[in-house]
Design a binder for these strands. Structure first.
Lengths: 172, 172
DNA sequence: CCTTTAAGTTGCCTTTAGAAACGTTTTTTA
DNA sequence: TAAAAAACGTTTCTAAAGGCAACTTAAAGG
């Protein structure tokens, strides 16, 4: 669609292609809350019906939702998360935690409680294989098994590694 | 901008408002790779210049990037990640891991290597406060300290908790 | 059977994205 | 130090996407 260069071999770009859209993420949020029907998505989000129609179709095409007909003829349907879609849960949680921290000043409107111990879930963090939490500067990108030439060239041009130095506060 | 109902009190919606846009996420990816200049973003992404201009302005307005003038007069600038922006690293990583798993069949084009032990980083997971990984069904949403009435009402309507049941495979 | 609800589709208008050209201000380099 | 090139946008124009309301068709409910 857009892109141009090697963009699409990047997993971030692929993910964005699937869900990088204002409405799509909110549709998924609703799906995780158990919403499955066209009218419910529409009513809860206030999204235009043609746009919703398009997004649901697109999500189904990506295998993130599955359209399940409730009638032989095909009309009347539910949209269910597939396993691929359910795995996007991690993305929603991390977005929510970022929003809680930076746009709600740590006072979340919604908390996720673990059934295992009744406590709020932990903040998600990037960790090494031994479980140590990693800061931005403590990792570097390198070509993986699926790398192509463009990716290899691109990575060679990266200076100090992931996020090589950043700056400033400005706080909230 | 859009929305309509209580949408915007949700942290996911706030996060989406800040970065929920095809280009914005890719701009941030570049920023994490150390890109800071207008021309570099433009050349690497192939994004239209007016759109890039708009997105950088928007990100700066959200306090995710900071525009740092290199000359007294103001022209010629760099865009640096703030701490708020750097914290979005978690989002990018989880998007990348999702893309690796579901659109690259587990063969990532890029791997992130921890400097702590030289190994690829772990898969990010949602965990309880004791560090146990949680599945979708093992948590439930409840109103937090920042909840308003609309949120409370909304949560009361959620059936079995987060993601109450999903379905089907369809695999990749 | 008649009414209501669900799930879209269609048509129209507004907003946003994309491509190319233009104008300045810095930085090179000859 | 003068001329050329590069950097950083803004402007203009066209194409595509989003939003809104009305309309259609198919089930469900009574």
């Amino acid at each position: 669609m857009h892109s141009g260069n090697e963009t699409m071999s990047c997993s971030v770009a692929r993910a964005v292609d699937a869900i990088g859209d204002r409405w799509t993420v909110l549709i998924l949020r609703e799906a995780f809350w158990g919403v499955r029907r066209f009218e419910s998505f529409q009513a809860n989000l206030g999204i235009a019906r043609n746009v919703l129609s398009d997004r649901l179709r697109r999500l189904a095409a990506h295998g993130i939702l599955e359209r399940v007909s409730l009638t032989p003829g095909g009309k009347r349907a539910e949209y269910h998360l597939t396993r691929k879609g359910a795995d996007l849960f991690r993305v929603l949680v991390v977005l929510m935690q970022w929003g809680d921290r930076w746009t709600h000043d740590g006072e979340p409107p919604v908390r996720l409680i673990a059934r295992t111990n009744g406590e709020p879930i932990a903040e998600m963090a990037v960790r090494d294989s031994d479980g140590r939490a990693l800061g931005l500067m403590e990792m570097r990108p390198e070509p993986g098994p699926g790398a192509n030439d463009a990716t290899r060239r691109r990575l060679a041009a990266v200076p100090g590694g992931a996020g090589s130095r950043y700056q400033s506060d400005r706080s909230t």
